[in-house]
């Protein structure tokens, strides 16, 4: 590689060979050439960049930013909808639960009322029957007392006659009435 460049330099002429030991950068004879072509290069790059490349890249970046922003907004919207749906679902669930509670409470109240009704009826029936029975018992007792008095009078008259006495009805009645009074 080194020899190749040496040859190139050697074949280049005396002035190049003379400048070889020094710095080619300080050979001012070709500065005009370099500066001219550099300026051409810079102007071309500047126009290519400012007219074509940079606006295009800026547009692409802006478009991408827009797309990202849109997508984010869309995602936000979808998220909001999902939250809304969840809220609606929870609301429906709560409503259904409340309704169920209502129904249960109503049923319970109805049953309680029916039960109270039935109980009252039964109580009344029982009371009626008890009263009837008591009446019957009282009648029986009253008739029994009467019978007792009759039996006692008969018995007393028999006993007195058996003992040989003669008892009139009035005395016996008085005596039985006195004894059974207690």
């Amino acid at each position: 590689m080194a020899t190749e460049t040496t040859e190139a330099a050697a074949g280049h002429g005396a002035d190049a060979a003379a400048s070889a030991p020094g710095m080619p950068q300080l050979d001012f004879s070709n500065w005009g050439n370099q500066i001219f072509w550099l300026l051409v290069t810079l102007v071309v790059i500047y126009f290519v960049l400012s007219r074509i490349a940079l606006p295009r890249i800026a547009a692409v970046l802006a478009e991408r930013q827009g797309t990202i922003t849109n997508d984010l907004a869309k995602a936000e919207e979808l998220k909001r909808q999902a939250v809304e749906a969840e809220e609606a679902y929870n609301q429906a669930l709560a409503d259904a639960r409340a309704e169920a509670q209502n129904i249960i409470a109503e049923a319970k109240a109805e049953i309680t009322a029916e039960l109270a009704d039935a109980t009252a009826k039964a109580d009344a029936e029982i009371a009626a029957k008890a009263a009837e029975s008591e009446k019957a018992i009282a009648e029986i007792r009253a008739s029994a007392m009467e019978n007792v008095v009759i039996v006692a009078k008969d018995t007393a008259a028999e006993i007195v006659s058996a003992l040989g006495g003669k008892a009139d009805a009035k005395t016996i009645d008085a005596a039985v009435a006195e004894r059974t009074k207690g």
Binding site: A2, T5, T6, A8, A9, H12, G13, D15, A16, S19, A20, P21, G22, M23, P24, Q25, D27, S29, N30, G32, N33, Q34, F36, W37, L38
Partner: peptide, 26 residues
């Protein structure tokens, strides 16, 4: 010859480097 790589030379023949000459720099 570490500096030879920096030598400016015309590409299309000839020795003179005018301001418009097409060189390796160009």
């Amino acid at each position: 010859h570490p500096m030879d790589q920096f030598i400016v030379k015309p590409l299309l023949g000839g020795d003179a480097v005018h301001w418009y000459t097409i060189t390796n720099v160009t």
